[in-house]
Each structure stands twice: as C-alpha cells, then as structure tokens.
Design a protein around this nucleic acid. Sequence first.
DNA 1: GGATTAATTAAACATATGATTAATTAATGT
DNA 2: ACATTAATTAATCATATGTTTAATTAATCC
Lengths: 216, 216
Amino acid sequence: MKQAKQRKKLGRPEGQTNLSDKILDVAEVSFADLGYAGTSLRQVADQLGVNAAMIAYYFDNKENLFKAVFLRKGNEVAAQRMKSLEALTAKGAYDVEALVRAFLEPSAKYRKTKQGRAFLRLHARLHMEPEALSFQLRREAYNESTKAYAEAFHRVLPHLPIASVYHKLSLMIGAYLYAFSDTNRLDELIDMEKKATVQADLFEDIVRFAVAGMKA
Amino acid sequence: MKQAKQRKKLGRPEGQTNLSDKILDVAEVSFADLGYAGTSLRQVADQLGVNAAMIAYYFDNKENLFKAVFLRKGNEVAAQRMKSLEALTAKGAYDVEALVRAFLEPSAKYRKTKQGRAFLRLHARLHMEPEALSFQLRREAYNESTKAYAEAFHRVLPHLPIASVYHKLSLMIGAYLYAFSDTNRLDELIDMEKKATVQADLFEDIVRFAVAGMKA
DNA sequence: GGATTAATTAAACATATGATTAATTAATGT
DNA sequence: ACATTAATTAATCATATGTTTAATTAATCC
C-alpha cells in the first residue's frame, strides 16, 4: 500500500544532509535527459524529497544551477587536459596520437559511472545548442585548453594552416561528443549476432579515427 | 509611435495564406534555436501574427508539429542519400570517398539557405537527445539509408567487421553534425588575421577527415 | 545559556503553457 | 442561391513553472 505523502518536519533537520551536492547530481541527470528548458526545478526537488525552495537557497536560480552543474565537471576536464599537455610538453616530444589521447582521455574516464555518463550527455547537448548561455559556459571552461591543443597540433602538423587545425580539431570534437553521448543508436543498428564480434574498444576506435583524420 | 495591437478580422480571410507551410518554417527556426521544450507555440504563432489555435488546427499538437518539421527535410535527406547510393551501385564501382561524399552531400546542400541551416541546427540537437521522440524520428527517417551505407562501406572495407563499420560511420556522423550545426565556435577561436588563410572549403575538409578516418 | 546563523518547509505570486471550444467569415459544391 | 466545408479569432481551461516570503527548527558562537 502506497504510503500517503507524509508532511515533513519543519525547520532545520538534525545532522548534515549534503543537499547541495545531491541537487547537482539529480539536476545533472535531468539536464542530460530533458535539457535545460525541459528540466523542472520542482521535479528535481521532488526526486530528492525536498522543497523546491532549497534549489533557490543553494543556487539562486535555474541558470545558476545549470552553470554549477556544467562547470563542476567541465572545469575538471579542462584542467586534466592542460595537465596532460604540460606533461607532454615537458617530456619534450609528442606526436599526433599522443595529443589525441591526452585530449580525449579526461572525457573518456567519465564513461565509467552513471553520473559521469549523464555529464557526457549533457555536454554533448550543450555543444549543439546555439543559446548564449551554452556559448558562454563553453568559452569559460574550454577556451584556454582548446587553444593550447590547437597550437600543439599545429606544431606536429606544421604544413597545415592554423585555421585548418582548428577545423580538424572541431571535427574530432564532434565525433567524440556523439560517441560518448550514447545517442548514436549503435545498439539498435547492429544486429545482435554481429555485435559480439567487436565489443573491442570504443575508445581505441575513436583514437584511430581521429588520428587519421587529423593527419589527412 | 508604436501602433496599438489592432484586433484582427474574424473568420476565414480572403485568398489563401499557405499558413501551414509558414508555421513549419517559423517552428523550424524556433526548435533549432530553443529546442523542443524551449519552443512556445504561442510565440511561434505570434511571429506569424496569427492565433495560436491555428497550430492545433493544422498540426494537432506540439509533438506532431515537431515531427512534421523534422520529417519534412529529414525524409528528403534520406531519399537523396538512397538515390545517390543506388546511382553508385548501378555504376558498378565506388570507393570510400565516393560513399562519404554521397552520404554528406544532401546535408551540405542545406547550408546554403537560412531555413536549411535552421534544419541542420535542429538536426544536430536532435541527435544528441536521448528522448524517446528523438530516437523514434531518427529511426523512421534514417534506419534504412544508414544500414544501406554501412553495408556499402563494408563492401569497400571488407577487412573491417561490420560492427566496426557502424562505429566509424557514427564517428563521421558526429563530426559532420557538429560542423554543420554552426555551434563549433570556430569564428571565436580563430583570430581574424589567421581566418583569411583558409576560408577554403569546409566541405572538402570534412570529406578528407572522414575518408581518412573510415580507412584507418 | 542566550543570541545568531544555517537549513528547511509551506504557502503564495505572477506568469506562461498546451489545448479546447464556440463564434465568425470566406470558399466551395450542388 | 443555398448548404456545407475550410480557415480563422477570441476566450477560456487546467495546469505547470521559476521565484519569493514568512515561519520554523537545529547548529553554532560568545
């Protein structure tokens, strides 16, 4: 028998709840699956069994919540990319493949958890949206590292004009965004019998594809 | 001085208005720029200076309007892809590059008009959304032609398992979706001085990148 | 231990949304 | 010419939304 929606006790609860982190997690999944406009703050709060005003309490408003969700992991990705690039630079020598791996690895790591995959879906959506907010957030999180990688690629592909390096980098980005978003319907398109063949390694496939594309 | 919002004449207007096509056009831009959930039917109607009930009159409801918008050009793309593939098959011989061109050309053509570019933005968004409606529409529009191309690629790349061909095809799709969506911020990232260098041909860049990736 | 601050709920606000219905006018069919 | 059908507006419905405010309770500070 379904228990009647019991009234919660008023006022501050005992102990600590870590509510603001929980809000980020639930919102991340909702933004990933329903998008920014499709996400209702009330529904996010309901999933946590918490009053909707708590979102405003911790994050002021919807836009700010979205920023917090995106930048939480977005900044991590950018930082790890920069760190790997600096390591390669310090080592003195790198090639196209090393750069491709260093660029993609931070995102690839998120594929291992449910919450990480939600971020990757959200991330892919964000990149296909022309809204000002999306552009602003991507600028804030990624401008620095993307420019650094473009210059690094330019160093190992000196025959290409820098504009062409950016073009290719963005083709690589499109490819991995789609692959990591889990929206490519591969499961639907590949017959079961044939699927066993190559469960191989999606990541290595992407690296091979991107390396060849960059060098072409 | 702003003219007061004048009341429109009641009843059927004289002549014909082609309203249902106009609704599709305006909705296409709105879905592209604001997404499905972010699009308000009232705002679409307002842009046309028409009552919101007209959308229900022609398209029943929002979901149905979205389907109509997407399938209008989505089915065109699929049909053109199939036609090109049949032409290649009839000719007897084709290679990876011919297949890549045949697959991408129908979408590339839409880049020439404002309305076509709106479709490409909408199209890219749709592909990164995990919602059931998106999957259903992509299935309806693209399953047949995508399978046909996968088999054709398999014929010219016989050493690759079919599952791997699908993987690569989907990487190529991710790349072109992002490139044609005009959300890749290339204009922002490439400095003005450097931009003049290669305004070259975005389409040829994509073809080179994708051909190399498929063959890799 | 009393005052202050932090974390929570309940209630309400203003507004926006997708959808439906009834009335109205032009076009079409007979 | 008249009846029917097509295309439109105005008004309304029910509901959902993001946000704000006041009340309430626990934790922390002095």
